[in-house]
């Protein structure tokens, strides 16, 4: 595992063999009830959301759905979300805030869907509104990047009190292929791009851009379960004003500049 290159990690992060959103839901939560729709236009199947019990805590769970078989992948648009999906997620977060439920998000997406309809329906607006809402949401939130966390499409579910990554997940401004085609004018140089982008969990932890790395393997779900329980209990003890202010400062302090 030590010798794996960044690009090999990218490919591993994209592997169909990794657990999907329903695996996390089934293993970590009880009594999940899925909710649908943005109440504006349609239900975007690339986002799954609903309520469930985590130990004795009612929580709202939201995540990207990539699908495993080819048919599934097509049905869920490969986890590429349209504005309706982000708006569904926001609707469920507004509901979570109202009822004081913590929000747990599972992130695994190649990015927001670059389609005509998605643009016509306000992709930018949908993502921006999610960032704004999550940043000031008066209930605890934990985001877990489980596979591929790419671009604004990933961030739209990740402005959270805690941001964790699985050991072999990646989190980046854009896919390495997209990055290479922009900066090197050659999408085939994705491997080189992956190194330069510093997108592995280990790199990002070192930068302080994420809070924790979850080791993969047999005990992953156990580790996730105990971390979620510990951190949710911590966050739920905070008063709402302090919670929001701490979250604001967490993102406010991400800089790297001369002043």
């Amino acid at each position: 595992m030590q010798t794996m290159s960044s690009y090999e990690k990218v490919q591993l992060a994209r592997s169909k063999d990794r657990p999907g959103i329903y695996d996390y839901i089934r293993t970590l939560f009880d009594g999940f009830i899925e909710f649908h729709g943005d109440r504006l236009y349609r239900d975007d199947p690339s986002i799954v959301g609903g309520i469930a019990m985590f130990h004795d805590i009612p929580v709202t769970v939201i995540g990207h759905h990539k699908g495993k078989t080819t048919e599934e992948q097509i049905a869920y648009n490969f986890g590429m979300t349209s504005p309706e999906g982000y708006r569904k997620a926001r609707r469920l977060m507004v509901q979570a805030e109202k009822f004081g439920r913590p929000v747990i998000t599972f992130i695994d997406t190649p990015g927001a869907y670059p389609g005509m309809e998605a643009e016509s329906n306000g992709q930018s607006n949908a993502i921006a509104e999610n960032l704004a809402f999550m940043s000031a949401m008066q209930t605890p939130s934990i985001a877990i990047i489980t596979g591929e966390g790419s671009s604004g499409g990933a961030l739209a579910l990740a402005v959270s009190d805690r941001v964790w990554m699985l050991e072999n997940a990646v989190y980046s401004i854009l896919s390495p292929e997209g990055f290479a085609s922009i900066l090197y004018k050659d999408a085939k140089r994705a491997s080189e791009a992956s190194d330069a982008m510093k997108l592995t969990a280990q790199d990002l932890k070192q930068f302080g851009l994420i809070d924790a790395i979850i080791p993969e393997g047999k005990k992953m779900f156990l580790a996730l379960d105990s971390m979620l329980l510990r951190e949710l209990n911590r966050l739920m003890k905070m008063n709402k004003t302090a919670l929001v202010e701490t979250r604001y400062q967490k993102f406010r302090e991400i800089d790297h500049m001369n002043d």
């Binding site: 940043s135 402005v159 401004i173 790297h256």
Partner: peptide
């Protein structure tokens, strides 16, 4: 858009600016 050469730091500026604007508007 976000500046490629600063990687995830740039992506985080989206969250950071959106958060500041939200507080200002509220």
């Amino acid at each position: 858009g976000a500046r490629m050469q600063e990687g995830l730091f740039s992506l985080m500026q989206m969250a950071k600016t959106a958060a500041a604007i939200e507080q200002f508007k509220r």
